[in-house]
Amino acid sequence: MGCFQSAQRRQCPGHEDPLLLSSQTAFTVSEVEALFELFKSISSSVIDDGLINKEEFQLALFKNRKKENLFANRIFDLFDVKQKGVIDFGDFVRALNVFHPNSPHEDKVDFSFKLYDLDNTGFIERLEVKQMLIALLCESEMKLSDETVETILDKTFLDADVNRDGKIDKEEWQNFVSRNPSLMKIMTLPYLRDITTTFPSFVFNSEVDEIAT
């Protein structure tokens, strides 16, 4: 149910029913409402239109709107499932759900594969990995020679690209992360377990009867 269908709902675009979002995710209704407090804060930081644009997303990530970042852009694009150039509340909750500690590991692996498959070809290609490595080096001011970058790429593909076709497919990725579980650490946000205590003000703005939670 969208917010325009009920007089009791907040009048903002994309604010889906917390009960519905809770039923589709690992979040309780209270947690969805707490996430709305976070969403409101991010989505009003530049333009108060109830939607998160790329600039607002970067501002929330880096506390600095001028910081262009390949990875932040990629995450934004994956959150923006409807490819509208903005993230609505439903997109936000469903995307963050993947990062919930209780979400299925397979969903996290799948999301991470999409994240690194920059050109959406269904494969993580060597050129994409190189592009990401270079972006990381620029971001971190870490200095590595071209030769070292190529050595890291060689080593990575030797380990991950089992069929030696020069690219990593979904099955190879699943296998690779199972042997390198630390790569999945970024896919779990412990904050999501305590979201109601991080944003306690949701209680004052709650629209859902306690009995419904």
Partner: peptide, 24 residues
């Protein structure tokens, strides 16, 4: 860093650390 695989390095990017979204 030579001993690390590329994804270990990439996963250290600040742009992939969504935890900062929750910092006020």
């Amino acid at each position: 860093p030579v001993l690390m695989n590329a994804f270990e390095l990439i996963s250290t990017s600040q742009g992939l650390n969504l935890g900062t979204l929750f910092e006020k």
